[in-house]
Nucleic acid binder design. Sequence first.
DNA 1: ATATAATCGAGACGGTACGTCGGGTCTTATA
DNA 2: TATAAGACCCGACGTACCGTCTCGATTATAT
Lengths: 204, 204, 204, 204
Amino acid sequence: MVKKPAPDATRRSEKSRRAIYAAALALVGEVGYPKTTVEAIAARAGVGKQTIYRWWSSKADVLLEAFLDLSAQAAQEAGQEPYVIPDTGDLAADLKTVLRITVDQLLDPRFEVPSRALAAEGVLNEQVGREFVERLLEPQLQLYVSRLRSAQDSGAVRGDVDPRIALELFVSPLAQRWLQRTGPISYDYTDTLVDYALRGIAPR
Amino acid sequence: MVKKPAPDATRRSEKSRRAIYAAALALVGEVGYPKTTVEAIAARAGVGKQTIYRWWSSKADVLLEAFLDLSAQAAQEAGQEPYVIPDTGDLAADLKTVLRITVDQLLDPRFEVPSRALAAEGVLNEQVGREFVERLLEPQLQLYVSRLRSAQDSGAVRGDVDPRIALELFVSPLAQRWLQRTGPISYDYTDTLVDYALRGIAPR
Amino acid sequence: MVKKPAPDATRRSEKSRRAIYAAALALVGEVGYPKTTVEAIAARAGVGKQTIYRWWSSKADVLLEAFLDLSAQAAQEAGQEPYVIPDTGDLAADLKTVLRITVDQLLDPRFEVPSRALAAEGVLNEQVGREFVERLLEPQLQLYVSRLRSAQDSGAVRGDVDPRIALELFVSPLAQRWLQRTGPISYDYTDTLVDYALRGIAPR
Amino acid sequence: MVKKPAPDATRRSEKSRRAIYAAALALVGEVGYPKTTVEAIAARAGVGKQTIYRWWSSKADVLLEAFLDLSAQAAQEAGQEPYVIPDTGDLAADLKTVLRITVDQLLDPRFEVPSRALAAEGVLNEQVGREFVERLLEPQLQLYVSRLRSAQDSGAVRGDVDPRIALELFVSPLAQRWLQRTGPISYDYTDTLVDYALRGIAPR
DNA sequence: ATATAATCGAGACGGTACGTCGGGTCTTATA
DNA sequence: TATAAGACCCGACGTACCGTCTCGATTATAT
């Protein structure tokens, strides 16, 4: 097998990389994911197609990294705040707070369009899906795990409950309504989810 | 605007329709959704491309109807059994039973490949998504609503609980793990979901 | 070999035939021969496609008959006058007169477009070409043969000359200029042709 | 109006161009012009369709250039001989010689099929027609003009004769018989044409 | 400071599939 | 039985992008 010589990452053009991210995100926002083409990204970024194929394996790959970059930037800009779940001692209130922020994000077009595109791609394309989950979704879910563990320590959640499963009781319903449009999304809705879920995992 | 005259549905070839459904499902199973092309469906079905474009608007549309047809057929063949949730009086047991059947279905390649494809398409394409939910997903979810209502009547579920939301506590986690591969799927897992969820919606 | 049962000509719809001729000629005039389709002829004539294919073998065939019909009609309307070459005793004058009429016809769009289309078709399609020559061109050329024979009788043309070849000296140059656009067409030009042909180009 | 940026001719693939010419000529020879498709040319040439559409506007355009190329090659191979009309002092003999060569060419399938196709296309398509005449036909006709001018100098042709018209007396009849199949083509025939044209058909 | 080797913008290339058009056949219901 | 209507199978159209492949023209170290 003839292996292609790996490109020399140290000589990579930072300017091009950024332009490609920007072009990819802009195009996905403007024309949607399926109509976004590698050719158009290259043209919009003022970049040769080969420069894209040299560093990424596919359109999905470009968008994944572009979105990760966007998320990282957003995180830095916002300080760290939204990325830790508050621990005021009132578990229900803390979860409701965080889920309301998530609701806002899910309805913000700046995030919605690319993340919906990546989610869709990930449903079909296992590789993209795993990377999407591993690098974006799971780290966020782990924050819930931590918060639930802390709640177990303080006695607000039964000790025999598996936090990784428990969090799905309120996170997954929201995710499904958003992904598959099985119902409307609102603060009321997420509040209700937390109420229903907590009574189940709380000791009597 | 020039509107194309609607084709005369009474003269439609039933044989072609069936051949197209079969070809579409077979191809999606064999090469996956993205590599399934309208051209290949037509060729495999022994049909002109125009016959596909005359009756459907897109590859997604064909697959949606093919899958609906498959589901309807499966329903008829199976009598009605899997399509009503049993009511033995033991809510937890009944839900666990049905969810185990769902787990089996989700892992059966015959259903998994096309339904995953449709789900992915529906994430991006709102029209497909809505149709998918309306004609396939929601009818199944309504079965849970009925069963939960019956449980409310018998006192096994609190009366102030919204059954349409409550069902998401155990259905959505399973759906998300399947769609986004956020975790493994098993009987144990769904049993646990039912346990966690029920204690929350059951009266103290 | 399975032979198709010949259609019963006695039951043929005269109205349809005429409508097809009219539609074919109109379309060729409006959009040109290559863009004239059997489908469009049928639609414009208010006729089923099968009715065309039942009686004609091809688009060229339809147009050929439509044009012959048109020519026949034109002949009847005009009495017989333009279809006999005058014989005033002055051969040169007579030929010049007729050729000037031909020039007019060649520049009249009503005749030019369809006859150009048929000529082109006939260049490639031997069957159409032969029919075109046999039923339209040759009969007209024979008129020149007659006139030249008469001139031979009166001593205006040498007796050892083959009239069928001689007529080409002035007819073919005009035909070629028209068909292939190798030069402009005018009364002067045809007059000159007659002069050269009759006297020759070598000095006496 | 959105104009497509002209392709960069300096980067054009010479190999592809040649393969396309060869494929076009071969196909026209094998299946005839109307059944020759751009798709088939591309396939036979081992070339993408876009490569054809990038450089030519139509099937006719491809064939025109292919044929011009063929003619140019034939000219080079043959030295210069057939492309100058001999001047032995005997005008009639010289013309008969050249016309006999033309007869041979017209009956040689290698040239006949594509040139007939181009002629037919040129009858309908003015652009193709003009190019065909300008780049192929007229240059050859100009050779006759030169020879006739030389004959005028030597007194073999009257000085008041227009050579561009005079040449049509023997060239056009041959052309028409070939194009429209109005009669057989032979050495005898062309010899006769030269005789008639030079001496006229009227008695001295 | 210069060589030199890789990346870069550009875009032509061989392909695959698109969605449309029209050819010629076949079916259905009127007349 | 011929007809108007039009669905059907098929093949080609001309276009859009794919991912690969040259091309000079910049870089950006490593001499």
